[in-house]
Design a binder for these strands. Sequence first.
RNA 1: UCCGGGUUGGGGUAGUGGUUAUCCUUCAGCCUUGUGGAGGCUGAGACGCGGGUUCGAUUCUCGCACCCGGACCCA
Length: 432
Amino acid sequence: MYDRIKGFRDFYPGEMAARREAIDGLERVARRYGFREIGTPALERAAMWTEKSGDDIVEELYAFEDQGGRHVTLTPELTPTVARMVVAKQQALSKPIKWFSTRPFWRYEQVQQGRQREFYQTNLDIFGSSEPEADAEVLAWAADALTELGLTGEHFEFRISHRDILGGLLESYDERVDTAAAIRAVDKSDKLEQAEYHGLLADAGLTAGDAAEFADLVAGGDLEEVVEVADSETVTASVENLQAVLAAAEDFGAREYCTISLETARGLDYYTGVVFECFDSTGEVSRSIFGGGRYDDLIERFGGQPTPAVGVAPGHATLSLLLQRAGVWPEEAITTDYYVLQVGDTRPVAARIARDLRAHGNVVETDVAGRSFGAQLNYADSINAETTVIVGEQDLENDEVTLKDMESGEQVQVPVEGFPGEATRPTVDGLE
RNA sequence: UCCGGGUUGGGGUAGUGGUUAUCCUUCAGCCUUGUGGAGGCUGAGACGCGGGUUCGAUUCUCGCACCCGGACCCA
């Protein structure tokens, strides 16, 4: 027996069926909005991360040298790849570019609840529009996708903010403030004691008094007050942008899920505008379910024409936790429409019936293990067959087959000649 | 990298420094080439890995691996 690699998971058919349903739900809604599916490589040049970010992420790469001497890495996220794709065909692609994809990513990091080393995300991005409608459409997709999966406004909320509100406000206190450090402090403020929080703000360059006022202002979330105190063009414009996004979200049906929360800052430093995170409203899942936002500088940093972008990337692990706690995780079970049971040498007829039923799109199994009658019924039961078609020598003597409803146990004889015929999905109930 | 709790058949468990490791479930076959989800019989299947102590270790001890949760991080 070989071990599974730590942080990597197997999905057996029951659980996979539930995951499939969830993934299909997310993608179905994306397609309705006209997002187009893309496919992307598992390996990229390691330099896409080692040169651009030079961050902690580099330590978490599954990077190695391939047999051709290339320095490659399993991709830890999608954004650089889509940026590369956009840059490569920038002139050819009509804007806005609306893409999505579901696939695994890999990071060598500590395994925890909702976090594995191989993890699946559905990424969804819009490139080429800086209008608030683009931000709002991403929010609307996220809201529609979650409600498609059975969640309601009672289960989740989007905490929404704007990167430059905090940045601009900080600069209005003192130009030399380390905004990145201060924003990181804000991002984790709810986990910190007030003194610690204020201490971090002071470390970033705020005076003690300013730190306290800033913290109160951020926690209060009153946009008008923020504009007034900051008295800065950046802040005023950012607040206007945030409000414009929320106004569009109203028309798109997503406003009701959004809460203004200036404390939402996201750890990512490539975000440039509106940022948001999805949280479990009940507070049971303490960490954010997923996040997203605007990153207008990234394409240019990857060598393309300046191209605004906004996107979101729900991770399936945390999403599944949310769905389970809300009681709407799909049932983890396999389903089967028909089991065609053979008794004696009835394979030609049984095979014909199985093929006809499959041609109508049904999930049909028949014996491939040479099992006895009882054992076949046992098996039909174990695969949750809805109806069993008994093709036995005795039945065929009368030119009939027997249909058995596996839940009620009721049976009905039908002529073998016309079965299944034109009936797409014949059942015992329907034939009585 | 750090902290806490774990690891006994496929799943869930009992137990022990000393014969063949308990029970439930599961799986396969049979009772029953023609009726599953009830019963009976038969069979399959486990002490995470390595070192130490010991006549003898699944049990004590150390290290490691893995699992669960958390810190950090979350690009």
